[in-house]
């Protein structure tokens, strides 16, 4: 842990991209996020793991304010997250998001899914947007499906299109909210491969996942959450081989031994 925090502070002075400070959120009586402090530096890949209901998805969704927070502050690239309106929309455009259920626009072709944001938000020229979209679709390996509708694609293909759609906005950071949880087992790897490639290319990523293999191989840091709190932060090696908290030991013992 000492190594990590030193490395973190070195970078933190210059390049804090996402900063959450004492963030609290309730769903009714449920205190779903409790005093969350989390700093993500540029180029870092942070994997958030933890049992269901621990607040990890909510944490991910607060970063682009799909969930509001009750107290605390969230800043992206030095700018505090605005509450509503145009400012918020502009900031969201800089934060890519990939959902568990893909959420592609069902009435638009794959290509239109990837060009919509470029044209309407970035005001890009139609032709340029299409070129970029095709390049991105090729990059995630679904270039041949550009003119199909989402319903005609497999889950893995849809999720890769969703990644391309988010990348088309040139985001500063990408949020992945359990991107492989709704996929058939045989399609998980094609999505994880794309994500690993993104990580290698230096994209800043926050990934909520149950894929421990991905956490081990692609993460710079693992954040373990339970009951609305960040219980433990460590490098993947440290976390998986030598977890410090009992809660993490318990969690790992349940998922790793079968």
């Amino acid at each position: 842990m000492t190594e990590v925090s030193v490395a973190k502070e070195d970078k933190a002075a210059t390049d804090e991209l996402v900063v959450l400070k004492s963030v609290n959120k309730h769903f009714g009586a449920l205190h779903v996020l409790q005093d969350i402090d989390l700093t993500i530096t540029r180029g870092e890949v942070v994997v958030v793991i933890g049992p269901s209901g621990s607040g990890k998805s909510t944490l991910c969704r607060t970063i682009n304010r799909l969930e509001t927070v009750d107290s605390g502050s969230i800043a992206i690239d030095g700018k505090p997250l605005p509450a509503e309106g145009k400012e918020l929309a502009r900031l969201r455009a800089d934060v890519g998001m990939v959902f568990q259920s893909f959420n592609l626009f069902a009435h638009k072709t794959v290509l239109e899914n990837v060009t919509l944001g470029q044209v309407k938000v970035r005001k890009a020229d139609g032709k340029k947007a299409e070129e970029k979209a095709r390049a991105l679709l090729d990059r995630v390996g679904v270039g041949a499906q550009a003119d199909k509708y989402p319903a005609q694609l497999s889950g893995g293909q849809q999720q890769r299109v969703a990644i391309a759609r988010a990348l088309a906005m040139d985001p500063k950071v990408m949020l992945f909210d359990e991107p492989t949880s709704a996929l058939d087992p045989e399609m998980i790897n094609e999505v994880l491969e794309v994500m690993k490639q993104l990580a290698r290319d230096g994209m800043t990523m926050v990934v909520v996942t149950h894929e421990m293999g991905f956490a081990r191989s692609a993460a710079n840091r693992v954040v373990f959450m339970a009951d609305g709190r960040i219980v433990e932060e460590a490098t993947p090696d440290q976390f998986f081989s030598n977890p410090r908290s009992d809660r993490a030991k318990d969690f790992l013992s349940k998922i790793l031994h079968h």
Binding site: L91, A93, F99, S101, N103, F105, K120, A162
Partner: peptide
């Protein structure tokens, strides 16, 4: 989710 995805790309 589709409306969320649309908001998430900045619409």
């Amino acid at each position: 989710g589709q409306a969320e995805a649309a908001r998430a790309i900045g619409l």
